[in-house]
Design a binder for these strands. Structure first.
Ligand code: MN
Ligand code: MN
Ligand code: ZN
Ligand code: ZN
Lengths: 143, 143
DNA sequence: ATTTTTATTGAGAATGAATCTCAAATGCAA
DNA sequence: TTGCATTTGAGATTCATTCTCAATAAAAAT
Protein backbone atom coordinates (compact mmCIF):
# COMPACT_ATOMS: atom_id res chain seq x y z
CA UNK A 1 0.00 0.00 0.00
CA UNK A 2 2.78 2.43 0.88
CA UNK A 3 4.58 1.63 -2.36
CA UNK A 4 1.46 2.17 -4.44
CA UNK A 5 0.95 5.59 -2.83
CA UNK A 6 4.60 6.53 -3.15
CA UNK A 7 4.56 5.68 -6.80
CA UNK A 8 1.36 7.63 -7.38
CA UNK A 9 2.57 10.67 -5.48
CA UNK A 10 5.83 10.81 -7.40
CA UNK A 11 4.14 10.22 -10.73
CA UNK A 12 1.86 13.16 -10.03
CA UNK A 13 4.80 15.40 -9.12
CA UNK A 14 3.57 15.65 -5.55
CA UNK A 15 5.84 15.54 -2.56
CA UNK A 16 6.37 12.64 -0.25
CA UNK A 17 5.91 14.36 3.08
CA UNK A 18 6.16 12.90 6.58
CA UNK A 19 2.46 13.55 7.09
CA UNK A 20 1.40 11.70 3.98
CA UNK A 21 3.58 8.71 4.79
CA UNK A 22 2.34 8.49 8.36
CA UNK A 23 -1.26 8.80 7.29
CA UNK A 24 -0.95 6.02 4.74
CA UNK A 25 0.73 3.83 7.35
CA UNK A 26 -2.18 4.35 9.70
CA UNK A 27 -4.78 3.70 7.05
CA UNK A 28 -3.01 0.51 6.02
CA UNK A 29 -3.77 -0.86 9.46
CA UNK A 30 -7.43 0.12 9.45
CA UNK A 31 -9.79 -2.75 8.95
CA UNK A 32 -13.12 -1.03 9.49
CA UNK A 33 -14.66 1.98 7.85
CA UNK A 34 -13.12 5.19 9.11
CA UNK A 35 -13.64 8.93 8.99
CA UNK A 36 -11.38 11.93 9.47
CA UNK A 37 -12.01 12.13 13.21
CA UNK A 38 -11.07 8.51 13.76
CA UNK A 39 -7.80 8.95 11.87
CA UNK A 40 -6.93 12.07 13.82
CA UNK A 41 -7.70 10.54 17.20
CA UNK A 42 -5.78 7.37 16.43
CA UNK A 43 -2.76 9.38 15.36
CA UNK A 44 -2.98 11.73 18.28
CA UNK A 45 -2.95 8.72 20.61
CA UNK A 46 0.27 7.59 18.93
CA UNK A 47 1.74 11.09 19.23
CA UNK A 48 1.86 11.52 15.49
CA UNK A 49 1.32 15.16 14.58
CA UNK A 50 -0.87 15.92 11.62
CA UNK A 51 -3.40 18.69 11.20
CA UNK A 52 -7.01 18.18 10.39
CA UNK A 53 -6.60 20.20 7.20
CA UNK A 54 -3.82 17.94 6.01
CA UNK A 55 -5.91 14.84 6.60
CA UNK A 56 -8.73 16.40 4.61
CA UNK A 57 -6.27 17.28 1.86
CA UNK A 58 -4.63 13.87 1.72
CA UNK A 59 -7.66 11.60 1.60
CA UNK A 60 -8.75 12.65 -1.90
CA UNK A 61 -5.23 11.91 -3.14
CA UNK A 62 -5.35 8.43 -1.67
CA UNK A 63 -8.72 7.90 -3.24
CA UNK A 64 -7.45 8.89 -6.70
CA UNK A 65 -4.56 6.57 -6.12
CA UNK A 66 -7.06 3.81 -5.49
CA UNK A 67 -5.96 2.67 -2.03
CA UNK A 68 -9.08 3.93 -0.29
CA UNK A 69 -12.69 4.26 -1.35
CA UNK A 70 -15.48 6.52 -0.15
CA UNK A 71 -18.39 4.75 1.52
CA UNK A 72 -21.72 5.95 2.85
CA UNK A 73 -23.21 5.04 6.17
CA UNK A 74 -26.42 6.17 7.83
CA UNK A 75 -25.69 9.86 8.31
CA UNK A 76 -24.60 11.94 5.38
CA UNK A 77 -20.99 12.09 6.50
CA UNK A 78 -18.06 10.89 4.46
CA UNK A 79 -16.42 7.64 5.48
CA UNK A 80 -13.70 5.69 3.78
CA UNK A 81 -12.58 2.13 3.68
CA UNK A 82 -9.31 0.53 2.88
CA UNK A 83 -9.35 -0.56 -0.72
CA UNK A 84 -5.90 -2.06 -0.88
CA UNK A 85 -5.70 -5.79 -1.41
CA UNK A 86 -9.43 -5.96 -0.94
CA UNK A 87 -11.96 -7.00 -3.52
CA UNK A 88 -14.83 -4.73 -4.45
CA UNK A 89 -17.91 -5.26 -2.34
CA UNK A 90 -21.12 -3.53 -1.34
CA UNK A 91 -22.80 -3.05 2.03
CA UNK A 92 -25.82 -3.88 4.11
CA UNK A 93 -26.36 -1.52 7.03
CA UNK A 94 -28.55 -2.34 10.01
CA UNK A 95 -30.92 0.53 10.77
CA UNK A 96 -31.11 -0.57 14.38
CA UNK A 97 -27.56 -1.27 15.53
CA UNK A 98 -25.50 0.22 12.71
CA UNK A 99 -23.78 -3.06 11.93
CA UNK A 100 -22.21 -3.18 8.50
CA UNK A 101 -22.19 -6.38 6.48
CA UNK A 102 -20.04 -6.58 3.39
CA UNK A 103 -21.20 -8.64 0.45
CA UNK A 104 -20.40 -9.31 -3.16
CA UNK A 105 -22.70 -10.75 -5.76
CA UNK A 106 -21.28 -11.32 -9.18
CA UNK A 107 -24.68 -11.68 -10.78
CA UNK A 108 -25.76 -8.26 -9.53
CA UNK A 109 -22.56 -6.75 -10.87
CA UNK A 110 -23.05 -8.32 -14.27
CA UNK A 111 -26.68 -7.20 -14.45
CA UNK A 112 -25.54 -3.67 -13.73
CA UNK A 113 -23.21 -3.77 -16.70
CA UNK A 114 -26.00 -5.13 -18.83
CA UNK A 115 -28.48 -2.43 -17.92
CA UNK A 116 -25.82 0.25 -18.42
CA UNK A 117 -25.10 -1.05 -21.89
CA UNK A 118 -28.79 -0.81 -22.68
CA UNK A 119 -28.67 2.92 -21.86
CA UNK A 120 -25.32 3.45 -23.60
CA UNK A 121 -23.96 4.39 -20.19
CA UNK A 122 -20.34 3.62 -19.39
CA UNK A 123 -20.14 2.70 -15.71
CA UNK A 124 -17.06 3.69 -13.75
CA UNK A 125 -18.08 2.81 -10.24
CA UNK A 126 -21.21 2.20 -8.26
CA UNK A 127 -22.55 2.21 -4.77
CA UNK A 128 -25.13 -0.25 -3.53
CA UNK A 129 -26.30 -0.04 0.05
CA UNK A 130 -29.10 -2.11 1.47
CA UNK A 131 -30.65 -0.77 4.66
CA UNK A 132 -32.60 -3.04 6.95
CA UNK A 133 -32.36 -5.19 10.05
CA UNK A 134 -29.50 -7.54 10.72
CA UNK A 135 -29.92 -11.03 12.15
CA UNK A 136 -29.45 -9.86 15.74
CA UNK A 137 -31.96 -7.03 15.36
CA UNK A 138 -34.84 -9.08 14.06
CA UNK A 139 -33.85 -9.80 10.51
CA UNK A 140 -33.65 -13.56 10.46
CA UNK A 141 -36.92 -14.83 11.82
CA UNK A 142 -39.39 -12.27 10.49
CA UNK A 143 -41.80 -13.14 7.68
CA UNK B 1 -50.59 12.82 -2.63
CA UNK B 2 -52.22 15.50 -0.49
CA UNK B 3 -54.71 12.98 0.89
CA UNK B 4 -51.96 10.52 1.78
CA UNK B 5 -50.10 13.23 3.68
CA UNK B 6 -53.22 14.54 5.36
CA UNK B 7 -54.09 11.07 6.55
CA UNK B 8 -50.58 10.46 7.85
CA UNK B 9 -50.35 13.80 9.62
CA UNK B 10 -53.66 13.27 11.37
CA UNK B 11 -52.84 9.69 12.28
CA UNK B 12 -49.63 10.89 13.89
CA UNK B 13 -51.45 13.57 15.88
CA UNK B 14 -49.64 16.29 13.98
CA UNK B 15 -51.32 19.46 12.79
CA UNK B 16 -52.36 20.24 9.29
CA UNK B 17 -50.81 23.65 8.86
CA UNK B 18 -50.92 26.02 5.90
CA UNK B 19 -47.20 25.57 5.41
CA UNK B 20 -47.35 21.81 5.29
CA UNK B 21 -50.22 21.83 2.83
CA UNK B 22 -48.54 24.35 0.55
CA UNK B 23 -45.28 22.46 0.63
CA UNK B 24 -46.91 19.18 -0.30
CA UNK B 25 -48.75 20.90 -3.13
CA UNK B 26 -45.48 22.20 -4.50
CA UNK B 27 -43.72 18.88 -4.20
CA UNK B 28 -46.60 17.15 -5.94
CA UNK B 29 -45.75 19.17 -9.03
CA UNK B 30 -42.02 18.46 -8.94
CA UNK B 31 -40.86 16.03 -11.54
CA UNK B 32 -37.12 16.18 -11.05
CA UNK B 33 -34.97 15.66 -8.00
CA UNK B 34 -35.12 18.64 -5.71
CA UNK B 35 -33.41 20.06 -2.65
CA UNK B 36 -34.45 22.51 0.04
CA UNK B 37 -33.16 25.53 -1.85
CA UNK B 38 -35.13 24.67 -4.95
CA UNK B 39 -38.34 24.31 -2.96
CA UNK B 40 -37.80 27.62 -1.21
CA UNK B 41 -37.00 29.52 -4.38
CA UNK B 42 -39.97 28.05 -6.23
CA UNK B 43 -42.30 28.99 -3.39
CA UNK B 44 -40.81 32.45 -3.01
CA UNK B 45 -41.45 33.02 -6.71
CA UNK B 46 -45.08 32.13 -6.15
CA UNK B 47 -45.27 34.42 -3.11
CA UNK B 48 -45.90 31.52 -0.78
CA UNK B 49 -44.34 32.22 2.60
CA UNK B 50 -42.55 29.40 4.35
CA UNK B 51 -39.38 29.52 6.38
CA UNK B 52 -36.30 27.48 5.66
CA UNK B 53 -36.58 25.84 9.08
CA UNK B 54 -40.11 24.70 8.37
CA UNK B 55 -39.08 23.15 5.06
CA UNK B 56 -36.29 21.30 6.84
CA UNK B 57 -38.73 20.15 9.49
CA UNK B 58 -41.41 19.03 7.07
CA UNK B 59 -39.36 16.96 4.63
CA UNK B 60 -38.59 14.16 7.11
CA UNK B 61 -42.31 13.89 7.84
CA UNK B 62 -43.11 13.52 4.16
CA UNK B 63 -40.42 10.91 3.87
CA UNK B 64 -41.86 8.86 6.74
CA UNK B 65 -45.22 9.21 5.10
CA UNK B 66 -43.70 7.73 1.96
CA UNK B 67 -44.51 10.44 -0.55
CA UNK B 68 -40.90 11.49 -1.04
CA UNK B 69 -37.62 9.62 -0.92
CA UNK B 70 -34.08 10.75 -0.24
CA UNK B 71 -31.69 10.44 -3.16
CA UNK B 72 -27.98 11.01 -3.50
CA UNK B 73 -26.31 12.91 -6.27
CA UNK B 74 -22.67 13.78 -6.83
CA UNK B 75 -22.02 16.11 -3.90
CA UNK B 76 -22.84 15.04 -0.38
CA UNK B 77 -25.96 17.14 -0.18
CA UNK B 78 -29.43 15.79 0.45
CA UNK B 79 -31.86 15.67 -2.43
CA UNK B 80 -35.34 14.23 -2.62
CA UNK B 81 -37.58 12.90 -5.28
CA UNK B 82 -41.28 12.55 -5.54
CA UNK B 83 -42.23 9.04 -4.58
CA UNK B 84 -45.95 9.33 -5.06
CA UNK B 85 -47.49 7.31 -7.85
CA UNK B 86 -44.00 6.47 -9.01
CA UNK B 87 -42.45 3.04 -9.06
CA UNK B 88 -39.21 2.36 -7.26
CA UNK B 89 -36.15 2.90 -9.39
CA UNK B 90 -32.43 3.46 -9.07
CA UNK B 91 -30.09 5.94 -10.73
CA UNK B 92 -27.17 6.33 -13.08
CA UNK B 93 -25.35 9.63 -12.74
CA UNK B 94 -23.05 11.04 -15.39
CA UNK B 95 -19.78 12.18 -13.86
CA UNK B 96 -19.29 14.63 -16.69
CA UNK B 97 -22.60 16.43 -17.20
CA UNK B 98 -24.54 15.42 -14.09
CA UNK B 99 -27.35 13.87 -16.09
CA UNK B 100 -29.48 11.45 -14.09
CA UNK B 101 -30.92 8.34 -15.70
CA UNK B 102 -33.54 6.38 -13.86
CA UNK B 103 -33.68 2.63 -14.26
CA UNK B 104 -35.30 -0.40 -12.79
CA UNK B 105 -34.16 -3.98 -13.08
CA UNK B 106 -36.30 -6.60 -11.48
CA UNK B 107 -33.55 -9.22 -11.59
CA UNK B 108 -31.21 -6.99 -9.59
CA UNK B 109 -33.93 -6.38 -7.04
CA UNK B 110 -34.62 -10.09 -6.66
CA UNK B 111 -30.94 -10.92 -6.33
CA UNK B 112 -30.70 -8.36 -3.55
CA UNK B 113 -33.44 -10.11 -1.64
CA UNK B 114 -31.72 -13.41 -2.20
CA UNK B 115 -28.36 -12.26 -0.87
CA UNK B 116 -30.04 -10.60 2.10
CA UNK B 117 -31.80 -13.84 2.96
CA UNK B 118 -28.45 -15.59 2.88
CA UNK B 119 -27.19 -13.20 5.60
CA UNK B 120 -30.46 -13.31 7.56
CA UNK B 121 -30.79 -9.61 6.83
CA UNK B 122 -34.24 -8.11 6.42
CA UNK B 123 -34.01 -5.38 3.76
CA UNK B 124 -36.18 -2.31 4.15
CA UNK B 125 -34.83 -0.10 1.40
CA UNK B 126 -31.77 0.25 -0.71
CA UNK B 127 -29.86 2.71 -2.77
CA UNK B 128 -28.05 1.80 -5.95
CA UNK B 129 -26.23 4.50 -7.86
CA UNK B 130 -24.04 3.84 -10.86
CA UNK B 131 -21.58 6.59 -11.69
CA UNK B 132 -20.09 6.85 -15.16
CA UNK B 133 -20.45 8.55 -18.51
CA UNK B 134 -23.75 8.99 -20.28
CA UNK B 135 -24.23 8.46 -23.99
CA UNK B 136 -23.60 12.14 -24.82
CA UNK B 137 -20.42 12.28 -22.75
CA UNK B 138 -18.65 9.34 -24.32
CA UNK B 139 -20.50 6.41 -22.90
CA UNK B 140 -21.97 4.76 -25.94
CA UNK B 141 -19.07 4.06 -28.27
CA UNK B 142 -16.22 3.38 -25.86
CA UNK B 143 -15.08 -0.18 -25.31
C1' DA C 1 -68.17 31.54 19.16
C1' DT C 2 -64.70 31.80 22.79
C1' DT C 3 -61.29 29.96 25.42
C1' DT C 4 -57.67 26.67 26.38
C1' DT C 5 -54.12 23.79 25.22
C1' DT C 6 -50.32 22.55 22.77
C1' DA C 7 -47.87 21.97 18.37
C1' DT C 8 -45.84 24.75 14.96
C1' DT C 9 -43.75 28.63 12.98
C1' DG C 10 -40.16 32.14 11.80
C1' DA C 11 -35.93 34.57 12.48
C1' DG C 12 -31.79 34.17 13.67
C1' DA C 13 -28.21 31.84 16.51
C1' DA C 14 -25.60 27.69 16.86
C1' DT C 15 -23.46 23.63 15.23
C1' DG C 16 -20.49 20.77 12.60
C1' DA C 17 -18.24 19.10 8.49
C1' DA C 18 -15.40 20.58 4.98
C1' DT C 19 -12.77 24.14 2.65
C1' DC C 20 -9.90 28.10 2.41
C1' DT C 21 -6.10 31.47 3.70
C1' DC C 22 -1.53 32.65 4.25
C1' DA C 23 2.80 32.77 6.60
C1' DA C 24 6.15 29.40 8.02
C1' DA C 25 8.17 25.02 7.08
C1' DT C 26 10.00 21.54 4.14
C1' DG C 27 10.71 18.34 0.17
C1' DC C 28 13.44 18.09 -3.71
C1' DA C 29 16.19 19.17 -7.67
C1' DA C 30 20.03 21.76 -9.21
C1' DT D 1 23.77 23.90 0.16
C1' DT D 2 20.81 26.86 -2.09
C1' DG D 3 16.57 28.15 -4.26
C1' DC D 4 11.98 27.50 -5.07
C1' DA D 5 7.61 25.51 -5.41
C1' DT D 6 4.76 22.67 -2.64
C1' DT D 7 2.88 21.58 1.66
C1' DT D 8 1.69 22.31 6.29
C1' DG D 9 -0.75 24.09 10.47
C1' DA D 10 -3.81 27.13 12.85
C1' DG D 11 -7.47 29.43 12.55
C1' DA D 12 -10.97 31.78 9.79
C1' DT D 13 -14.62 30.90 6.64
C1' DT D 14 -18.27 28.71 4.27
C1' DC D 15 -22.33 26.22 3.87
C1' DA D 16 -25.88 22.89 5.02
C1' DT D 17 -28.51 21.63 8.70
C1' DT D 18 -30.26 21.90 13.40
C1' DC D 19 -31.61 24.36 17.41
C1' DT D 20 -33.83 28.08 20.34
C1' DC D 21 -37.56 30.47 21.91
C1' DA D 22 -41.11 33.86 21.76
C1' DA D 23 -45.11 34.55 18.90
C1' DT D 24 -48.67 32.27 16.37
C1' DA D 25 -52.22 29.24 15.07
C1' DA D 26 -54.49 24.51 14.86
C1' DA D 27 -57.49 21.61 17.21
C1' DA D 28 -60.05 20.49 21.34
C1' DA D 29 -62.89 21.90 24.99
C1' DT D 30 -66.28 24.89 26.77
MN1 MN E 1 -16.73 -2.20 3.39
MN1 MN F 1 -35.19 9.37 -9.59
ZN1 ZN G 1 -28.47 -4.76 13.78
ZN1 ZN H 1 -23.20 13.13 -19.35
Amino acid sequence: MIEQCTKYIKKKGLRLTKQRIKLVQEIAQMNQHFDVDLLISVMKKKKINISRATVYRTLPILQECGVIREVTQLDNKVYYENNYNKKHHDHMICLNCGRIIEFFDNDIERLQDKICAKSCFKPEKHRLIIYGLCEDCGGGKND
